[in-house]
Design a protein around this nucleic acid. Sequence first.
DNA 1: GCCAACGTTGGC
DNA 2: GCCAACGTTGGC
Length: 160
Amino acid sequence: MNAASHRYWLMKSEPDECSIDDALAAPDRTVPWTGVRNYQARNFMRDGMQVGDGVLFYHSSCPAPGIAGIARVASGPRPDPTQFDPASPYHDAASRPEAPRWLLRDVQAVRKTRLLPLAELRAHPGLAEMLVLQRGSRLSITPVDPVHWALIADGLLAGR
DNA sequence: GCCAACGTTGGC
DNA sequence: GCCAACGTTGGC
């Protein structure tokens, strides 16, 4: 799997922290994707993403988990400032400013969609291979196959 | 609140 | 390098 070849991603956010509505209300509809503390997810942000890539904005750890909107990658990688903030739940005392361990991307909301529930994703035969649906999958950022993107963004969520 | 599954830590 | 213990994720 060539990490630089993906054009589409699914990114999980807890809506209590940052919902699709929060992103749409932010300046330039853009939010810094703070708090990723998993190396695989970090590496996707560092090495895999390109500005303009499509993002499925997923609400997790909430009463109605599922895809809540469409967004796009809006910046290159840069250090996540919360790692250096002792007051932040994402503080990492072992990370040095001269060698930041954690990175983020800016993510720009494109549109809110209907809530596409996790159960509906699971029920769709064409989406069975989606990484986020695999048993035990916990990664907060996963690449999305272009076929899956088309089924969701241009199909299930088209115009909604 | 439960718990399956995964990632990280740290002793050896 | 192994692997048990522990912490976290996240749906239900």
